[in-house]
Amino acid sequence: MRNRLIIGGFYFTGLVLLSFGISLIITAGLGAGPWDALFVALSYNIGLTVGSWTFIVGFILILLNGLLLKQKPDFSALITMFVIGSLVDFWLLVVFADITIAALGSRLLILLTGILSGAAGISCYLQSDFARNPIDQSMMVFHQLTGKSLSFSKTFLEVAVLIVAFFIGGPIGVGTLLVAFGIGPLIQTFYKPVTALRTKVCDSGEINKQTA
Rank of each mutant, 00 (worst) to 15 (best):
T113D: 11
N133E: 01
F142Q: 12
M139I: 15
L145N: 10
F130N: 00
G118S: 13
I135Y: 09
R132D: 04
G118R: 13
I110K: 02
S106T: 11
R132I: 11
L126Q: 05
A97G: 05
V141S: 14
M139G: 14
L145Y: 09
S117V: 01
M139S: 07
G114C: 04
G114Y: 08
S106M: 14
R107Q: 06
N133D: 01
Q144T: 14
L109I: 08
V95Y: 07
G121T: 05
I122E: 09
I115L: 12
F130Q: 00
F142V: 12
L108A: 01
I115Q: 04
M140A: 14
L126P: 00
I135Q: 13
R132E: 08
G114S: 06
L104Y: 13
P134V: 09
G114A: 08
A131N: 01
Q137Y: 08
G118M: 14
D136Q: 06
Y125F: 13
G118C: 11
F130L: 04
S117Y: 14
P134L: 10
S117L: 02
R107E: 03
S128N: 05
L145G: 06
F96P: 00
T100N: 12
C124A: 09
A103I: 08
I110E: 00
Y125T: 00
I122C: 07
I101E: 10
L112E: 11
L145C: 07
T146M: 05
M139Q: 13
F96E: 11
G114H: 10
I135M: 14
A102W: 02
V95I: 15
G118E: 13
I115C: 11
G114P: 03
D136Y: 01
D98C: 06
A102E: 08
A119S: 11
A102D: 08
D129T: 14
I110A: 01
D98N: 15
A102S: 15
S138M: 15
C124Y: 00
L112D: 14
R132N: 07
I110Q: 03
T100M: 10
S106N: 08
N133H: 07
L111S: 06
D98H: 11
F142M: 08
S123P: 03
S123Q: 01
I122P: 09
F96S: 07
A102T: 15
H143P: 15
V141D: 12
